[in-house]
Amino acid sequence: MLRLPNFHYHVPATVAEAVALKAEHGPHASYVAGGTDLYPNMKRRQQEPHHVIQISQLRELHEVRDEGGHVRVGAGLTLTAVHQHERIARDYHALAEAAESVATPLLRNMGTLGGNLCLDTRCNYYDQSYEWRKGINFCMKKDGDICWVAKSSPKCLAVSSTDTAPVAVALGAAIEVTSAKGETRRIPAGDFFRNDGIDYMKKEHDELVTSIHLPAPNGWRSSYMKLRRRGSFDFPVLGVAVFVKFANAKGAAAKDAPVEEARVVLGAVFSEPTIVHGAADALVGRPLTKESIEDAAEAAFKIAKPMDNTDYLLSYRKEMVMPFTKRALLKVM
């Protein structure tokens, strides 16, 4: 049986206590909510925290609140709760779709929104047991100093494999974090991540993701498409989240209305969810048509640079950027 290493276990009563514990133990501590990301990694000795701080019991993290039009969703909601939430399913369909596409029903009962946003980057040179990694003399993300995906790469190329983060970025959501100093700040999801497989989040180590702020639903539409081999279990090896806001959009009239604002975000092709600026350029100012969608998909295809460290051939993942972007956009047409 594959087992966890020893650790000290903490059950703080409040967010303040949780962040204080994290600050006290520094990099040797990890927050854990659902455990579906951290515990497998610990069993494979990819992460070896001496202190594990349980946060799923913190009531503050479970609230869904309307804050003057926009919605604040607690980071502690399970992914099941997210996709089953009436308000989220209605107004933030792409987020519900993304949450429902994560892993399996059992894992979604455990894993949380915050956990999925902060999901460790993945790579099939890294997501292996200690013994396996010894066979390649380890990699720079853990215990070694080379990136086996591209030996000359100065940085780790592990892949951002979260389904919800590309949606958060596309929606222009903000991620709220609380620090040990008691400060709370909202970081735009688009600024939260970094294209570095090791240091992939811009939050400080003691900062805890407490909620995600979703913009008011005022006529924009969103969707999410995910490439994976199986309809369940598998992480995305390409994700496309799109957000389109039409000028004066109201129901059927949107059909011919020009696009006022758009974001196309690629997941699982870099170490962070990546905004395709060229796609927005192709979409904004024109009605959403087959032609504009084609141009946007082309722009997404151009920037995508998947590497050989997930399921599927990298050339195929690159090729799929076109049809997946198109389909994501067709869904909001």
Binding site: N6, H8, E48, H50, Y130
Partner: peptide, 10 residues
Amino acid sequence: MSDHRVIPEP
């Protein structure tokens, strides 16, 4: 590598 058990038993 660190000790496979990481820390002594709590």
